[in-house]
Design a protein around this nucleic acid. Structure first.
Lengths: 122, 122
DNA sequence: GATTGTGGTATCCGATCGGTAACTGTCCCC
DNA sequence: GGGGACAGTTACCGATCGGATACCACAATC
């Protein structure tokens, strides 16, 4: 659970690339999906698992913790006899949604263009 | 209503998850950087290497090929005595730039807020 | 012909990631 | 009280990724 620092053999000073740092927000395998499925109402762990489908509990747990740590997601305890928790996007986390949507939109266009325009010369 | 049973998915059963597919566009380690440094004028291989800094030739080559394959980047031969090549973003590739910028912007805000506003205790 | 510079590619290798499965602990129901 | 469901966590393990290095192709130059 300790956050992994990139230990490079070259022992370089931190490049402080804002891109690289920020892309770590969405770097993991299912991270965008988690954010995406949280864009509506808060969801519980099992619900998210069901939503996303093929994600393993381990990875979902890891993503959720990592997103909490970066402040994108907040975890709220829901009072009840079976104490459960709800995850939801923070204010800032919600700002991520349009960004993801933009990337998806470009992806869709690219796919569509790939079909209509097979510029496959390589 | 003992438990909140919200089986209602977010009304989004993705056939093949568009997110996962599209995030492959920017999935690699240096992919956003490559797109970022190509957002201006076209660059040659060696220039990109210099721009990005610590990227290895192998990874840069792989990213470039992968971005060509997905239609984000185009490779143009530059006529000349030493035949060289320039890489530039395609039209659609250019649309990726604001999306990346948006994610970076959120990342910056998150970092800033993390300083000014410590996360509330769970 | 050999050397150099550009523009890559192929190979090896270790680190990391993600999946599977097993496990814990609590609560509900029978 | 036992079995099952929920909510995760942990251990292990194979696949993959990325870095370093070495190498190749080609033109111009010496």
């Amino acid at each position: 659970m300790a956050l992994r620092v990139r230990k490079s053999k070259v022992s370089e000073p931190p490049p402080v690339c804002p891109l690289t740092a920020c892309m770590k927000l969405l770097g993991g395998a299912w991270t965008p999906n988690v954010v995406w499925y949280l864009r509506g109402e808060p969801r519980r762990f099992g619900e998210l698992r069901g939503d996303i489908g093929r994600i393993s509990a381990k990875v979902l747990s890891a993503r959720l913790r990592q997103l909490q740590a970066s402040g994108v997601v907040v975890r709220n305890a829901v009072a009840g006899s079976p104490p459960s928790f709800e995850y939801e996007l923070s204010e800032l986390g919600r700002e991520l949604v349009p960004a993801i949507a933009a990337i998806v939109a470009v992806g869709e266009k690219l796919k569509r263009r790939a079909v209509t325009r097979p510029a496959k010369a390589r």
